[in-house]
Write a protein that binds this DNA or RNA. Structure first.
Length: 412
DNA sequence: TCTGGGGTCCTAGGACCC
DNA sequence: TCTGGGGTCCTAGGACCC
């Protein structure tokens, strides 16, 4: 019998903002951007949720529902810092801790009774420790599987602890909506509904063979989940095994749809540099490069190509992605979003010809030096020529009053 | 409603090889 | 030369999560 804790921070981004500005407390607050921006809600205070504001909702919709809300851009560095503080506390309670995202984590607490007492007592201690040392509230779900612990933490919100006793997992889940099961989104919910399934209990009563018929392998996993078992995907693995990333990507949605190919290509250059830099940080090489294009009408295409040899160099990523762009972009097709992803990651670049080796080695040294300059003086201190051109071009398009300059950045 | 950005995993068809 | 089957890689798209 195993014991898992699922710890989920309450309104995390908003709560961190409140630490730095206590006057926000008790007010409707929306983190994600300005109310007239293209973008979505990243987090909403409980006060804002009363007006129907939800995560992932367009900012403009949130502004309509709750015009008096305070809209904040959000500061990811701060959230990462507090996430790290929380992680360190969690590690004092279990050697097996896995951050599932910036604001939630899973702990394997199996066998911890001698140190921390029974689960409920341990959870209270953990909850109090986090509150005292970070000033943040969280909710904790306790169960014999990761899946049930996660669902329980959801139901414990806000600021609660919920323990599902061993043996009662299926009974706990049965009355809940199927959409409570992680992995069941809009589409699966609708398909299940057409089979007469609304609640987890309905799902548990279905024949496995029927589920397999309709959903394939995913159907079998669903049957297990309905009974509270960790089946499939993320839940299958042991807690706390850090795997290297499988892809690295950056994308950008423009304030307005863009027709100017020079601005588009300059943006590609900037994105390619960002992706390449992250690859170097991870010490990884990409064999496949993917371009993402979203047009004014929101139709989205991806085009990818696998290289002969893996790379982590800005210029090689850019050359490939620019080829893909030129082959797929048409004039008079305004672009809303550009994205670049590096996939098929590996830890070595593979065979090099003797001719190419010195050239690549020089590039690698130049880029490593550039990374160090950016570490010291900030991300904008240095750009490849083509990316820099785009930065100016985009700045020229923007209303200068709307974007405060990121002061202090030095140009090389 | 007018729809971000960073990810993971899955499916499905075609190429290619044995 | 009338045509199987399995494995793997590549490409495109989509569901889903926070």
């Amino acid at each position: 019998m195993r014991t898992f804790f699922h710890v989920d921070m309450d309104a995390f981004f908003v709560s961190v903002e409140e630490l730095f500005d206590p006057s926000l407390k008790g007010k409707p607050v929306v983190v994600g951007g300005r109310p007239d921006e293209r973008g979505v809600v990243a987090a909403a205070s409980y006060q804002a949720r009363k007006y129907g504001v939800r995560s992932a909702m367009p900012l403009r919709t949130a502004a309509r529902l709750c015009p008096q809300a305070i809209f904040l851009e959000g500061r990811p560095e701060r959230y990462r810092e507090y996430s790290e503080k929380v992680r360190r506390i969690l590690c004092e309670f279990s050697p097996a801790v896995e951050m599932a995202s910036i604001d939630e984590a899973c702990l394997d607490m199996t066998g911890s009774e001698r140190l921390f007492g029974p689960p409920l007592k341990a959870a209270h201690r953990l909850h109090e420790e986090i509150r005292q040392r970070t000033g943040l509230n969280c909710s904790i779900g306790i169960a014999t599987s990761r899946l049930v612990a996660k669902v329980a933490s959801d139901l414990a919100k806000p600021n609660g602890i919920l323990w599902v006793l061993p043996g009662l997992e299926a009974r706990f889940l049965a009355p809940l909506d199927v959409s409570r099961i992680p992995g069941v989104g809009k589409v699966t919910e609708e398909r299940l509904r057409s089979l007469g399934v609304r609640r987890v209990g309905d799902l548990a009563r279905l024949e496995e063979s029927l589920l397999q018929e309709h959903f394939g392998r995913w159907g079998l996993a669903l049957a297990g989940k309905a009974r509270g078992l960790d089946a499939g995907g993320w839940f299958d693995e042991e807690v706390g095994i850090e795997a290297p990333p499988k892809s690295v990507s950056h994308e950008h949605t423009f304030d307005r749809d863009i027709r100017d190919p020079r601005l588009l290509e300059a943006t590609l250059a900037r994105l390619a540099s960002m992706v390449a830099r992250r690859l170097r940080e991870y010490g990884l090489f990409a064999r496949t490069v993917r371009l993402k294009l979203r047009f004014h009408d929101f139709t989205t295409i991806t085009r990818e190509r696998t290289l002969d040899r893996a790379t982590q160099l800005d210029a090689e990523l850019l050359a490939e992605v620019r080829r893909l762009f030129r082959a797929n972009w048409r004039e008079n097709q305004p672009v809303r979003l550009l994205g670049i992803a590096a996939t098929n990651l590996q830890s070595h670049e593979g065979q090099l010809s003797l001719l190419e080796e010195p050239r690549r080695e020089r590039w690698r040294r130049v880029l490593a030096a550039a990374d160090r300059v950016r570490d010291r003086y900030g991300e904008e201190a240095l750009e490849l020529g083509s990316a820099l051109e785009g930065l100016w071009r985009e700045r020229a398009h923007e209303n200068p009053a709307r974007r405060p300059s990121r002061g202090g950045s030095k140009r090389a």
